[in-house]
Amino acid sequence: MMTALDDLCPIPFHEASENARARILSRLADTELFVALTREPADDRAEILSFDLSGTKAALACDSEERLSEFMGRVVAYAAMPGRVLAALLGEAGSALLVNPGRPSELFLDASALDWLGQVLSAAPEEGGELRPSWLTAPTPEAIEIFLVPLAQRLADMVGLATSAALVAAVWPDGRRGHLLLLRGCADDSRAALAKAFAEFFSFLPMVEGGVDIGFAELDLPQGALLLDVPERKPEPEPVRRDPKAPPRLR
């Protein structure tokens, strides 16, 4: 059975383009991973199982407990946690991570890559206040090429949180030029979380001149704005995404 990570890996991770690898890592951060432990946890304490891969200490994790047991050839103790939490733990410990060995989404991240990933995911967006751009125009062809497909994929995760998004080029009162992503149909109490989610999203992608701001104001859109709708909620329940701040679920 293919998973969301598999779907992003039509070719091996380390052969993929920079944009494709960025989308995979962004998805990995939000995926619940099952990391192998040395033994069953005791008193809420757990020790991650380490492997020696070419002289590098590495942990093993899969995006389902069945995949983990199948690779190990036996039922194995595990801790379940979002990829962002596991990346931070292993990055601090100087360990590497092997994900989904033998699957389309197999990938190996060394300690430096995990440390970088943790820094990206811990970054918080700057507060923009109510500052409004002086001028809006159509986004540049470069921005459309870089962001169109990743944005459509990311917005598919925003069912019920937003109704649509628009990407435009913006000129700000201080003369700065860049791009602006306007999110529509967002509840006030979800805006801070959405701003952080999209700040993370753009940090995984190539930079465009002036960067990309995130806003929620109802502005008149220029001709040529890139408009994207958030898919409507399906009758089937959406996959559960665990709170990144929640403690690991131990078995």
Rank of each mutant, 00 (worst) to 15 (best):
P139W: 03
L194A: 03
G215N: 04
V212M: 12
S134K: 10
A170Q: 08
L205H: 14
F204L: 00
D174S: 07
A217C: 06
L121E: 12
L131V: 13
A187H: 10
D189G: 00
F204P: 01
P173H: 06
G118P: 00
L167T: 09
G129V: 07
E209P: 00
M207S: 09
L136F: 06
L181W: 13
D110Y: 05
R132A: 14
A111C: 01
L114E: 05
L117S: 02
L148F: 07
R154F: 01
R154Q: 15
E145I: 00
F108V: 02
E218W: 05
R177K: 12
L117N: 07
L131G: 00
T163C: 06
F204I: 05
A199F: 01
A143C: 11
F108T: 04
P206G: 11
G175D: 10
L155V: 03
S190R: 13
F147K: 11
A195I: 00
A217T: 08
P139R: 09
H179Y: 01
A199Y: 09
E126P: 00
G185C: 10
L148I: 02
D188R: 15
L114C: 11
G129Y: 01
A195R: 15
R191I: 00
A199H: 15
P150E: 15
S134L: 07
W116F: 08
S134G: 12
G160M: 09
A169V: 10
A187S: 13
H179R: 03
I146Y: 09
G128K: 09
S190A: 10
L194F: 00
R191T: 00
E130I: 02
R177H: 07
L180E: 11
S112R: 15
E200W: 15
D189E: 15
F201I: 12
D188L: 07
A199D: 15
L161S: 09
L183W: 08
L181K: 14
